[in-house]
Design a protein around this nucleic acid. Structure first.
Length: 1106
RNA sequence: GGGAGCGUAGCUCAGUUGGUUAGAGCAGGCGUCUUAUACACGCCUGGUCGGGGGUUCGAGUCCCUCCGCUCCUACCA
C-alpha cells in the first residue's frame, strides 16, 4: 500500500450514505468545539441580534420545524462569517394548555374537575398535576436538542431561557406591573370565546386557529306579543340553545318594520323588517308599518314561557330590569342583511347582546353553564345536555307550542377550541385584560419600521390585524402557567400587582419557603394586606396566557430587570435584527413580541421602582427584520398530519438523505413564504444541482494535485501566468460570493442556492474543469500547479458560500482543499469571501462576457452538428462567428476564446466576421436589422409599427450601408424618421441547416469533411476505447501501457489518424506506442474489439508497460 | 360575509420600470463526450401565460370582469 494521499476526495460512500459522512462532521464540530470558538472569537464585536422563537417543548419536532430552523441557522451563520457577534440563545416555551392537555391524555382524564381530583385534596391535585407538566416538558427537550444538533442548527443550549424558570416569571411579573402602572390592566366582565372543556377563555389569536365549516340549524321563531298573542315578532337565530336565556329582542331604531299577514299562517300576524319580507315571507301582505324605535318597549312572551330558576350571572338584579325584560329594545348593531331584522338577545352569549343588556340593565341569564351543559330542564331538552346537542330538543319543544315559523340548516364557520376541538361558546366572563388598544397607533407605526419578508405580510396581514387590535385577554383559569401576579382585596375590590418575589416576600402576611417556586398552587395561599383597607387580599387564581411568556422573551431571557447585568444585556440585545418563524406566528409570537415591546418602548413613561434601570430603548418593535416561512406539505400538496399518516419524520429524512439535502430542499425550492411540498425525491435533485458538482470538482482536484505533488503551502503564486480560463473562473467565483451575499442581505435564500448551483454545475464543473482536463493530465508542471491553485481557490470560495446553507458538505469541502497533514480549521470559523483582502479584483465583466460568447458558440455549434448528424469526434474545417465588433484591445480576448472554441467544437479554424461590417468586403452572413424596441419604442411611439416595417425591409446591402453611416432615414406614413445604430439589433438571417443563431451571436459551421477527418475521428474513438480498457483493467493514472492493434484496414486508418492528431492528451503517449501485431487465432481473452464511426471493427489489447 | 395571495410546459417554479423568439430544473424522446463525474452533458418535444374584455404602437406584466385554488379574517343574531 502506498502512503496516504496528500489531498483527499469525499468519502467514497458519501453519495450513498451521506449520514455517515455528516456524523463525522458532527464529531469534528464537537471535538473542536467549533460553536464555542465562534462565540469566543466575536467577544466585543458588533452584534447581529437574533431571537430564537421558543418551541413548545411538549410535542415532537416535525419537518416543518426544520424549515424555520434552517432559515435561522443559515442567516446566523452568514452574519457570523461577515464578522458579527451572533448570540444564539436557545429558548423553551414550557407553559400552557398544550402541556396540560398532554398530561390529561396521559392520565386518561378530561376537564378541570377531574384534574382537581387526582390526589387527595384540590391543592395536592394541582401540585401533582403541575409537577407532571414540568416533567413532561423535560422529556421532549432532548428530542428537540438532538434535532437541532443533527440538522446543524447551532444554538446555545447550555444557557437557554425557560419560561417556567422563576427568574423568567419575575420578568413577566415586572412587565405586568408596568402595564398596571400605566393603567392598562383591568378586570372586566366580557363576552369572550370560551372552551367549556378546558374551562378557560381564549384570546383572539387562539380562536383564529380553530374555525371550521359546520352545519347549524337556522330557525325563525315567533315571539308572541303579551298584549296581542295573535301577533308575533319573527326572530332568527342559528343558536337555538341560547333561546332559554333570552332577555330581550332588538330592532334597529332607524329601520322600517312591517306587520304582515300570510295565507299560510291564518289568524296570525308578524312583525318583521320590511327589507327582509321578500326573503322570509314573500307571499305576505303588509298591514302596518313602523320605524324600529316606535316598536321599542313592546312586551313579548319569551320563547320558553314557564322557566324558573334560570341562573342569572348578575348577583343582584338591576332595578330597571323588570321593566326592560322581554321587551323590544333598540340596538344600532341590528342589520337587515340577514334573518328578520329582529334579533334575539341573550346577554350571556353575545358581545352585542351583552353591551345592550348592560345598558338596559337586563339580567344575564345563563341556561347553559360554563361547563357547556344545560343547567335546567327545558321541556324535552334535559338538564345536563351539551349545548350543541340541546338544539334538537329545544326546536321540537318550540314546534309543539306553535312557535316555530321556519326551520332549515345553514352552513357557516364556527369556532372550535384549537387544542381539544370542542365547540366554543361565547360566554360573559370576568377576565383580566391588557388594554393594548391604548397604544394601537404606536403598534401600527412600529410595524412600518419592520422589514418583512415577504413585505406583503407586514403591510397586509399583520398591519390590518393591528389596525383592528382588541384588548388582550391575558388571564387563563388553568394551572400550569405563569401565575397572574394580581392580589385582590375581598372587601374593597382594590387590587395590586406584585412585581417580584422579593416584593411578595415583603408583603406576604406569613413567610414562605426559600427558594420559592412561584407556580400554583403554593402561591395561591399567600395573602397580602390590602394597601387601602388593610384587610386580606388574595391572589386572583388565574395564570397568564402562555403567549405572553414568549412575547416577553426579549426582556425575560436575561431576567430583566432583576438579574445583575440584565440592563446591559437588554441594551446589547434589543431589538433583534432578525427573527424567522412560520406564517402561523403572525398572530402568535410576531404579535406578542410586538405588543409587549411597543408598550415598553413607546408607552411606558412612568418609571417604577425598577424602571430607572430600563435602558433607553428607541421606539421600536423588538425586531427589525422578520422572515416568514410557509407550510411544509407532503409530496401531493396535502397538509402533513398524524391522522393522514403523511408526516415526514425529520430524523429519518436526514438519516437517509443527509441534513444538507433536507436544508437545501427546504431553503431552495421556491420563495420562502410559499408553502412547499416535501417530496423525498426532490432531495436528491437538490444535492445533484449544488453539492455533487462540487464533490466532483474536488475529486478532480485531489486526483491531479496528488499526481502533480501540488503543495499549496510552498507554491509561489504568479497571477501573470494564469490562463484565460483561470482568470474567468476566478471572476465567476467572486461574482458568486457577491451574489450570495446580496441574496442573504435580502433574505432571499433561494437566490443564494440558485447562484451556487449555477457556479458549481455549469461554470466550475462543466466548463472550467472539463475544459482544463488535458492541461491537468499532461501540461507543464508549473502550469498545472497554477491551475490547481486556481481550482483550490475557487473551491474555497464556494465552500464558504455554501457554509451557511449546507454546513456539512461545506465543511468536508473546506477540509479537503487543504493538505491532509495541515491543521485545517472549520469553514465555519472563516470569514465570508467578500471580506477577503482585494476581493473584487478578479471580477472582469469583459472576460465574463467573452466567455459567455464562447459558451454560446459551443452550444450553437453542437446544435448544428446534431441537426446534420455529425458526431463531435469528426473534426470540421472551419466555423464562422458573427460577433459585435469589439472595442480596441478586446481582440485578444477573441483570439484566446478562439482556442477554446476550436477545441470544444472540434474545428480546425475559427473565422470571425464582425458587425458593423466594412462596406464592400465579402461576407459570409447576410445581415438583417430588427428594431430595438426598448430604445426605439420610447422615441417612436405610435409610429413604431411602420418604422418596424421599414427596418425589416432593409436588405443586406442597406444594413451595411446604414451601419457604416451610423444613421438612416426610413419612410413612415407622413414623412421620414431618422434611426441610429442603437435603434436596431443586427443579426444574420439564417435559414441554412449549417447555421444557428441566438439573440447575440450567429455561427456558421462548415459541415463538409473528408476522409482524413474520418481517420482522425477513428483515432479519437479508438483512444476512448483504449481508455475504457485501461479503466476495466484498473490501470492507475500514472501507468504507461503498450497497445497492440490487430492488422486491418481500419487499424491503419486509426494509425494515420493518430499521426494527424494534435494536442497534448496523455492517451497519445500510449497510442504512439501502438504497434501492429498479429492477433492470435485463439482469441486470447485480453483482446477486445471496438466498432468505429465507419462501421469497421478493430481488435486491440493493452498491456502494462513494465 | 370581508380581505389577501395564487393560477405560466406533464410536474415544481423563474419572469426586472409594459418592449415583440416567455425561461430553468425534473419527467419524456433522441443523441454525445469522457481515465474527475452515468447521480454527466447536449439537443428535441412540450405553453391560446386560468377565461373574457379594456388601455397601449406593443400586455405574462397595467385596469375591469368572470372561473378555480389557497390562506387569513369574522360572535353580525
Amino acid at each position: 500500500m502506498t502512503r496516504e494521499a496528500t489531498y483527499r476526495s469525499f468519502p467514497e460512500d458519501y453519495l450513498s450514505a451521506p449520514d455517515r459522512a455528516e456524523q463525522a462532521v458532527l464529531e469534528f464540530w464537537n471535538s473542536a468545539l467549533v460553536f464555542g470558538e465562534q462565540q469566543k472569537r466575536r467577544i466585543g464585536a458588533k452584534p447581529f441580534i437574533f431571537y430564537e422563537g421558543p418551541p413548545t417543548a411538549n410535542g415532537k419536532p416535525g419537518i416543518h420545524h426544520v424549515f424555520a430552523r434552517a432559515i435561522k441557522d443559515a442567516v446566523c451563520r452568514y452574519h457570523w462569517m461577515r464578522g458579527a457577534r451572533v448570540e444564539r440563545k436557545a429558548g423553551w416555551d414550557t407553559h400552557g394548555l398544550p402541556v396540560e392537555l398532554e398530561i390529561e391524555k396521559k392520565l386518561g382524564i378530561s376537564g378541570k374537575k377531574q384534574i382537581e381530583e387526582i390526589a387527595g385534596t384540590k391543592e395536592a391535585s394541582i401540585a401533582k398535576f403541575n409537577d407532571l407538566c414540568k416533567e413532561s416538558v423535560f422529556t421532549y427537550l432532548k428530542e428537540w436538542r438532538s434535532l437541532s444538533e443533527r440538522m446543524g442548527y447551532w444554538l446555545d443550549y447550555d444557557h437557554p431561557y425557560i419560561t417556567f424558570d422563576p427568574g423568567y416569571i419575575e420578568s413577566v411579573w415586572w412587565l405586568i406591573s408596568r402595564f398596571h402602572a400605566n393603567g392598562l390592566l383591568e378586570k372586566r366582565f366580557k363576552v369572550i370565546p370560551y372552551c367549556p372543556r378546558c374551562g378557560t377563555g381564549l384570546s383572539s389569536h387562539e380562536v383564529g386557529q380553530g374555525y371550521k365549516d359546520v352545519q347549524d340549524p337556522s330557525v325563525t321563531v315567533k315571539f308572541r306579543l303579551q298584549d296581542d298573542p295573535a301577533t308575533s315578532l319573527l326572530v332568527w337565530t342559528t343558536t337555538p340553545w341560547t333561546l332559554p336565556s333570552n332577555a330581550g329582542a332588538a330592532v334597529n331604531p332607524e329601520l322600517e318594520y312591517v306587520k304582515i299577514r300570510s295565507p299560510k299562517h291564518a289568524g296570525e300576524q308578524f312583525w318583521i323588517a320590511k327589507a327582509r319580507m321578500a326573503a322570509v315571507a314573500p307571499d305576505a301582505e303588509v298591514i302596518e308599518s313602523k320605524r324600529g324605535r316606535e316598536l321599542a318597549g313592546i312586551r313579548y312572551i319569551p320563547p320558553f314561557e314557564n322557566l324558573t330558576n334560570i341562573p342569572d350571572l348578575r348577583a343582584k338584579p338591576r332595578p330597571e330590569a323588570a321593566a326592560a325584560l322581554h321587551t323590544i329594545r333598540a340596538g344600532e348593531f341590528v342589520s337587515s342583511e340577514e334573518g328578520t331584522g329582529i334579533v334575539h338577545m341573550a346577554p350571556c352569549y353575545g358581545a352585542d347582546d351583552y353591551e345592550l343588556g348592560e345598558r338596559e340593565g337586563l339580567p344575564i341569564y345563563a341556561a347553559v353553564g360554563r361547563d357547556g351543559k344545560l343547567a335546567i330542564d327545558v321541556g324535552r331538552a334535559a338538564r345536563g345536555t351539551f349545548f350543541k346537542d340541546a338544539d334538537a330538543g329545544l326546536m321540537a319543544e318550540l314546534k309543539d307550542h306553535g312557535k316555530l315559523f321556519a326551520r332549515t340548516t345553514v352552513q357557516h364557520t364556527y369556532p372550535f377550541c384549537w387544542r381539544c376541538d370542542t365547540p366554543l361558546l361565547y360566554y360573559a366572563s370576568p377576565s383580566w385584560f391588557l388594554k393594548t388598544t391604548a397604544y394601537r397607533d404606536a403598534m401600527v407605526e412600529n410595524n412600518k419600521k419592520i422589514r418583512w419578508a415577504p413585505p406583503e405580510i407586514g403591510a397586509g396581514r399583520f398591519g390590518e390585524w393591528l389596525e383592528g387590535n382588541v384588548d388582550w385577554a391575558i388571564s387563563r383559569d388553568r394551572y400550569w402557567g405563569t401565575p397572574l401576579p394580581v392580589w385582590e382585596c375581598e372587601y374593597c375590590n382594590h387590587f395590586e400587582v406584585i412585581d417580584s418575589i422579593a416584593t411578595l416576600r415583603k408583603r406576604a402576611k406569613s413567610p414562605f419557603a426559600e427558594p420559592f417556586d412561584p407556580h400554583k398552587p403554593g402561591i395561591d395561599n399567600i395573602i397580602i394586606e390590602c394597601a387601602k383597607c388593610k384587610k386580606d387580599a388574595k391572589r386572583s387564581l388565574s395564570v397568564i396566557d402562555c403567549w405572553f411568556d414568549s412575547g416577553a422573551m426579549p426582556f425575560a431571557q436575561n431576567g430583566f430587570p432583576y438579574k445583575p447585568d440584565s440592563g446591559a444585556r437588554l441594551a446589547d440585545q434589543f431589538p433583534a435584527h432578525f427573527i424567522a418563524e412560520g406564517l402561523d406566528q403572525t398572530r402568535g409570537w410576531f404579535y406578542t413580541l410586538h405588543a409587549i415591546a411597543t408598550f415598553i418602548s413607546c408607552y411606558d413613561r412612568q418609571p417604577g421602582r425598577a424602571g430607572e434601570r430600563v435602558p433607553s430603548l428607541s421606539a421600536a418593535s423588538s425586531y427589525r427584520s422578520c422572515v416568514v416561512n410557509g407550510l411544509v406539505l407532503d409530496a401531493q400538496g396535502r397538509k402533513m398530519s398524524k391522522r393522514l399518516g403523511n408526516a415526514v419524520n425529520p430524523f429519518e429524512a436526514m438519516q437517509q438523505n443527509g441534513a444538507d439535502a433536507v436544508r437545501l430542499l427546504l431553503l431552495g425550492s421556491g420563495a420562502l413564504h410559499l408553502n412547499r411540498r416535501f417530496d423525498p425525491d426532490s432531495m436528491t435533485a437538490m444535492r445533484r444541482q449544488v453539492v455533487i458538482p462540487l464533490v466532483n470538482c474536488l475529486q478532480f482536484f485531489a486526483t491531479y494535485a496528488n499526481e502533480a505533488n501540488y503543495n499549496d503551502n510552498d507554491f509561489r503564486r504568479d497571477p501573470k501566468s494564469r490562463t484565460l480560463l483561470d482568470r474567468w473562473i476566478r471572476s465567476r467565483a467572486e461574482t458568486l460570493a457577491k451574489s450570495v451575499a446580496d441574496a442573504f442581505d435580502n433574505y432571499d435564500l433561494p437566490a443564494a442556492i440558485a447562484a451556487l448551483s449555477n457556479f458549481a454545475d455549469s461554470e466550475c464543473s462543466n466548463w472550467y474543469v472539463r475544459r482544463n482536463r488535458k492541461r491537468f493530465q499532461s501540461g507543464d508542471l508549473n502550469d498545472r500547479w497554477i491551475g490547481l491553485e486556481t481550482l483550490r481557490h475557487v473551491l474555497g470560495i464556494a465552500a464558504r458560500c455554501l457554509a451557511p446553507i449546507a454546513p456539512f458538505a461545506a465543511e468536508m469541502l473546506w477540509h479537503r482543499i487543504h493538505r491532509r497533514d495541515a491543521k485545517s480549521e472549520s469553514v465555519h470559523l472563516q470569514q465570508f469571501p467578500t471580506l477577503d483582502a482585494g476581493f473584487g479584483g478578479d471580477m472582469d465583466a469583459a472576460l465574463d462576457s467573452a466567455m459567455g460568447s464562447a459558451l454560446t458558440v459551443a452550444r450553437l455549434a453542437r446544435a448544428i452538428r446534431e441537426k446534420n448528424k455529425i458526431r463531435n469526434t469528426i473534426p470540421l474545417p472551419w466555423i464562422y462567428l458573427l460577433v459585435p465588433r469589439l472595442e480596441a484591445g478586446a481582440g485578444s480576448f477573441m483570439s484566446a476564446v478562439e482556442d477554446i472554441v476550436k477545441d470544444e467544437v472540434n474545428v480546425d479554424e475559427v473565422r470571425f466576421e464582425f458587425y458593423p461590417p466594412t462596406p464592400g468586403q465579402e461576407h459570409y452572413f447576410h445581415l438583417k436589422a430588427k428594431p430595438n424596441f426598448p430604445v426605439l419604442g420610447k422615441r417612436a411611439g405610435k409610429l413604431m409599427k411602420s418604422i418596424q416595417e421599414a427596418i425589416l425591409k432593409l436588405d443586406d446591402a442597406q444594413v451595411i450601408e446604414f451601419m457604416a453611416a451610423g444613421r438612416r432615414l426610413v419612410a413612415v406614413e407622413g414623412g421620414a424618421f431618422e434611426i441610429g445604430t442603437d435603434d436596431v439589433i443586427v443579426a444574420a438571417e439564417v435559414e441554412d441547416s449549417a447555421c444557428e443563431s441566438d439573440s447575440k451571436i450567429t455561427v456558421g459551421l462548415n459541415v463538409k469533411y473528408n476522409d482524413s477527418a474520418i481517420a482522425r475521428a477513428c483515432a479519437r474513438e479508438f483512444a476512448s476505447a483504449v481508455n475504457q480498457a485501461r479503466r476495466d483493467a484498473n490501470f492507475k493514472l500514472s501507468d504507461r501501457c503498450r497497445v497492440e492493434l490487430a492488422q486491418s484496414e481500419a487499424a491503419s486508418r486509426v494509425l494515420s489518424g493518430i499521426g494527424e492528431g494534435s494536442g497534448r492528451q496523455r492517451w497519445l503517449d500510449d497510442l504512439r506506442a501502438t504497434s501492429i501485431a498479429t492477433r492470435p487465432a485463439d482469441k486470447h481473452a485480453d483482446w477486445r474489439e471496438t466498432e468505429l464511426i465507419d462501421g469497421e471493427k478493430v481488435a486491440f489489447r493493452v498491456a502494462r508497460d513494465e
